[in-house]
Amino acid sequence: MNTTIYSIACTQLHSLMAGLKLATAKPNANLPVLEEVQLTVDGERVTGVATDRYRLFMDSREVALEQSPEEGEAATVFTLPASAADDFKRLGFSKSHERARVEVSADEVVVATASARLSYPPVGAEYPRVGALMVKALGAVAEGKAVEVPTQYNVDYLGDFAKVRRAAGIPTNTPLRMHQIPAGAGSFQLIVTFPGTDFWALLMGVRHPEGDANHSSAVEALERANETAKALASA
C-alpha cells in the first residue's frame, strides 16, 4: 500500500482544524464534502481550506514529510472531516507537546500519536475548486482595488452578534449587515444591523498607524494567502 506520512505538532493540527471547522457545512447527506477540510501540502506547509458555499476560510501550519510511498508521488492533497477537530480536542491535542503522524493512503487518513489512533475514510466527491475564488478576491487586495481600513476590531465582540441573534429570537437565516461610515481623518466606523429588526450596533475600531507591526504583519499575511491561492487554483 502506498502511504505518505507527515508529522505535525498536535497543538498546530488542532488549532488549524478548530479554526477551519467554523466555515464547514452542517451534516448534509447531499453535500458531505462540505463537511470536510481540504488539506494541501506544499513543501513544509500544510494549508487547510473550508467552505460551506457562503464562507471560505484558509489557514496553514508547518508540517514535515516523514515517509514517501515506495511507488509514485507523495500524496499532497487529502481531507479530514470537520469533526476531527472535536476528536483532537477530546484527546488533549491543544495542550500536548507531541507530534502527530498523519498517514495518507487511498483507503484512509490516519492521525496517530503514542496513545491514540484515529482513522478517517477518504471522501470520493471532488472538493469545490475554491482556489480561483481566493485568487480573485486576494488579487483585488494585492492590486489595490479593495479599501484598506487601518482599523482593528476585537473578534470576541464580532462573535457576540451570534449570541444576540439567538437571545433576541432572530431567525438564523437573517444576515448580519455591516455598514462602513467615515469617521473623519481617513478612519471608519462600522454600523451593524440585522435586517427587519430594530437592533443596531456601532463598532468603534482602534486606529493604528500603517507603519506599525500589526499593519505590516497583516499585509504579509495577505501576500502569503495570495500565493497559496494561486497554487491551489493551478493544482
Rank of each mutant, 00 (worst) to 15 (best):
K89M: 12
T76H: 07
F88Y: 08
S94V: 09
S96K: 04
S96G: 03
R99F: 11
K89P: 10
V102G: 00
K95V: 13
F93W: 09
A84T: 12
P81K: 00
A106N: 14
R101E: 15
V111P: 00
F78N: 01
K95R: 14
F78R: 06
L80V: 09
D107V: 08
R101Q: 15
V102R: 00
K89C: 11
H97E: 15
S83V: 10
A106Y: 07
V110T: 12
L80E: 02
A85P: 06
V102C: 00
A112F: 05
F78T: 01
S96A: 09
V109K: 03
L80T: 00
T76K: 12
L91Y: 06
G92I: 04
S96F: 04
A84F: 07
S83R: 12
A106S: 15
A84M: 12
E98P: 07
S105M: 04
S105N: 05
V110H: 03
S96N: 03
L80P: 00
E108L: 09
V104A: 05
A85Y: 04
P81L: 00
H97C: 14
V104E: 01
E108I: 06
D87T: 11
F88C: 04
V104S: 05
V104L: 07
L80D: 01
V111H: 00
L80R: 01
A100C: 09
A112H: 04
A85Q: 04
R99Y: 10
E98D: 15
A106G: 14
V77G: 06
D107N: 13
S96Q: 03
E108T: 10
R90L: 13
A106L: 12
A85K: 01
H97T: 15
V102M: 03
V110A: 08
F88A: 04
V104D: 00
V102Y: 00
S105E: 02
D107G: 10
A100H: 03
V102T: 02
T79E: 09
R99Q: 15
K95Y: 10
S83G: 11
T79K: 11
T76P: 02
V111W: 01
S83F: 08
A82F: 05
V77F: 05
K95N: 13
K89Q: 15
V111D: 01
E98L: 11
F78W: 06
V111Q: 01
K89I: 07
V109L: 08
D87P: 04
K89D: 15
S83D: 13
S94R: 11
T76G: 05
F78S: 01
S83E: 13
A112Q: 11
